[in-house]
Design a protein around this nucleic acid. Structure first.
Ligand SMILES: [Mn+2]
Ligand SMILES: [Mn+2]
Ligand SMILES: [Zn+2]
Ligand SMILES: [Zn+2]
Lengths: 142, 142
DNA sequence: TTGTAAACAAGAATAATTATCAACTAAGAA
DNA sequence: TTCTTAGTTGATAATTATTCTTGTTTACAA
């Protein structure tokens, strides 16, 4: 994956990439650092930032805007939206083809003058009810 | 407006509020500070932050998440979405009842287990074509 | 195996935001 | 009006998030 994107394969990139890609959370740089540190005590915070940034530039991850004053990173490259928990600040992936089409089709019927739309993302605010249980989305229409 | 929200009426709040409410931009704290400073040289940055924060807490404004590492503030309290210009980083209000209903209705048909939706906001990414001309949205369907 | 550009760790530097605190003031009570 | 006081402000220090600098190490092409 790194090679495909012309990135040198280093231990640091493998470790950070593995965490980011395997469990699709939306961690801050700090989160990543804390997580990988126990097994990789020599990796520095600057490297975490540079690595995340290089993933973003390579298109392997994206930044997610928040209101908390820190940037979150997302390795889920599929088209998806986000559930923002107002209590825990966690961001949960939400994928729904129909919803996407619905909005996409509608946006195409509008003509937004002087603005070229590239894509969109829906930020669904609310709160997780039971903090330990998972959030599951079910499509009512088949 | 301030009195209705049990906020003491101070010169600083009037000045900052006036800027924020009259031209519905999405300024950073720094933007607000730079803008009001010429006519109010004694207002401090800390006051700008505290004032914006108190507007948010009172429900007179909202924070807008960005990917730039600084928070933006929005005094447009109507339900609306945002056009994010990837080039200039400006955020433009986008209001469309139909689109809102479309998404709202659809979200209600889903049952998102263990998550209580309060509201949502669509982030439309793209770029402003001609930087000096305005961005206008027209509804194609009446 | 070696040369070299790229990447790294450590720590300094900067940028954004928040905290502290003494002085001031809005606004209600007397 | 004047008094009282809780809330607000400005100056400045502190904290937090991120980026920069520099000497050292490493990936990998030749
Ligand atoms: Mn910063
Ligand atoms: Mn901060
Ligand atoms: Zn995501
Ligand atoms: Zn807005």
């Amino acid at each position: 994956m790194l090679r495909e994107h012309d990135l040198k394969v280093t231990h640091q990139r493998l470790v950070i990439g593995q965490y980011l890609f395997e469990n699709k959370k939306h961690p801050t740089a700090e989160d990543v650092y804390e997580r990988i540190r126990p097994n990789n005590p020599s990796i520095s915070m600057a490297t975490v930032y540079k690595t995340l940034d290089c993933f973003v530039k390579a298109g392997l991850a994206q930044k997610v805007g928040t209101t908390e004053g820190k940037t979150r990173y997302d390795a889920n490259l599929d088209r998806h939206d986000h559930l923002y928990c107002e209590e825990s600040n966690q961001i949960i992936d939400f994928s729904n083809e129909q919803l996407h089409h619905l909005v996409d089709d509608y946006l195409r019927t509008l003509n937004i003058q002087n603005f070229e739309v590239s894509d969109f993302q829906i930020q669904i605010n609310g709160k997780v009810l039971e903090k330990n249980k998972p959030v599951i989305v079910k499509n009512s229409i088949k």
